[in-house]
Simulated scan of single mutants.
Amino acid sequence: MRNFAKLFYACIFFVSGSMSLLAENPTNSTFCSFNPTTALEKVYKSPIGTWEYTVEDVPYEYSAGVLIITKEKEEYKVVVKVNYNTLTASEVKVNENTVNFSVYIEGGKVQVSLQVKDDLIQGTADSTEGSFSLKGKKK
């Protein structure tokens, strides 16, 4: 029991000594290198989330919808909710602030390319019917 007490006090001594070093030199923290500003910037600029979007010059039932972008492990997934349907996108590729994917609407393939800037998205949806402008906002 005596040895346990000595070990306990030695640990307390080393921990308290390390804490005083951290107070003197906070830039070399070994306990926590978390920067909340950097973390918020990553979340704010991330394409992950729920996006409400509109598309110009398309039939009314396809002119607005919701994109849900998620990431599981290292793989991104996109779900499109439009015209009372939920569609799962394929060929999803995310590179920094660019999101590309394909989705089938009424049997036709639509390729979507989006740019993410802060809480806004903007891009195009290309189909056999033509190219359409798409824009939206993070929900």
Rank of each mutant, 00 (worst) to 15 (best):
30 T>D: 02
83 N>C: 11
11 C>P: 04
95 N>G: 03
47 P>I: 12
93 K>F: 08
31 F>N: 02
37 T>Q: 09
62 Y>K: 05
32 C>D: 13
67 L>M: 08
75 E>K: 14
58 V>H: 09
22 L>H: 08
83 N>S: 15
66 V>T: 15
92 V>Y: 03
33 S>C: 01
25 N>D: 15
49 G>P: 04
28 N>V: 02
89 A>E: 11
90 S>I: 09
51 W>P: 05
52 E>M: 07
43 V>K: 13
74 E>F: 00
20 S>N: 08
14 F>Y: 14
82 V>E: 07
20 S>M: 14
42 K>C: 07
42 K>A: 15
49 G>V: 07
10 A>T: 12
34 F>I: 07
59 P>L: 09
35 N>I: 01
68 I>K: 11
42 K>F: 06
70 T>H: 03
16 S>Q: 09
11 C>A: 13
62 Y>T: 00
22 L>R: 04
95 N>T: 15
33 S>I: 03
78 V>R: 03
29 S>K: 03
79 V>L: 11
80 V>Q: 11
75 E>F: 06
34 F>C: 06
27 T>V: 04
33 S>D: 10
75 E>S: 10
11 C>K: 08
38 T>I: 14
51 W>Y: 01
14 F>V: 15
57 D>A: 14
81 K>M: 08
72 E>M: 01
89 A>I: 00
79 V>Q: 10
15 V>L: 15
72 E>C: 00
32 C>M: 07
41 E>N: 11
44 Y>G: 06
79 V>G: 00
62 Y>M: 11
87 L>F: 15
14 F>I: 10
48 I>A: 10
88 T>P: 04
21 L>G: 11
82 V>D: 03
29 S>E: 04
72 E>G: 06
60 Y>I: 06
95 N>R: 12
46 S>G: 05
45 K>S: 13
44 Y>S: 14
33 S>N: 11
79 V>S: 11
16 S>E: 00
42 K>P: 06
10 A>Q: 12
22 L>N: 11
24 E>W: 05
27 T>K: 10
15 V>T: 10
29 S>C: 06
90 S>E: 15
61 E>N: 09
21 L>V: 09
88 T>W: 06
79 V>H: 01
27 T>M: 06
82 V>K: 04
64 A>P: 00
46 S>I: 06
51 W>D: 01
62 Y>P: 09
33 S>P: 03
40 L>I: 10
36 P>R: 13
20 S>K: 07
76 Y>E: 01
50 T>F: 02
57 D>S: 12
92 V>A: 07
86 T>I: 14
53 Y>W: 10
29 S>V: 04
78 V>A: 08
93 K>A: 14
73 K>L: 10
23 A>C: 07
91 E>M: 06
90 S>Q: 13
93 K>D: 15
32 C>F: 04
17 G>Q: 12
51 W>V: 03
93 K>N: 15
74 E>R: 07
83 N>Q: 11
76 Y>C: 03
66 V>E: 11
16 S>D: 07
66 V>K: 13
63 S>N: 12
37 T>L: 03
10 A>F: 09
12 I>N: 08
57 D>W: 02
68 I>S: 13
39 A>S: 12
44 Y>D: 10
90 S>D: 13
67 L>D: 04
40 L>F: 03
36 P>G: 08
48 I>P: 00
75 E>D: 12
20 S>F: 12
18 S>E: 09
86 T>N: 14
40 L>R: 13
89 A>M: 02
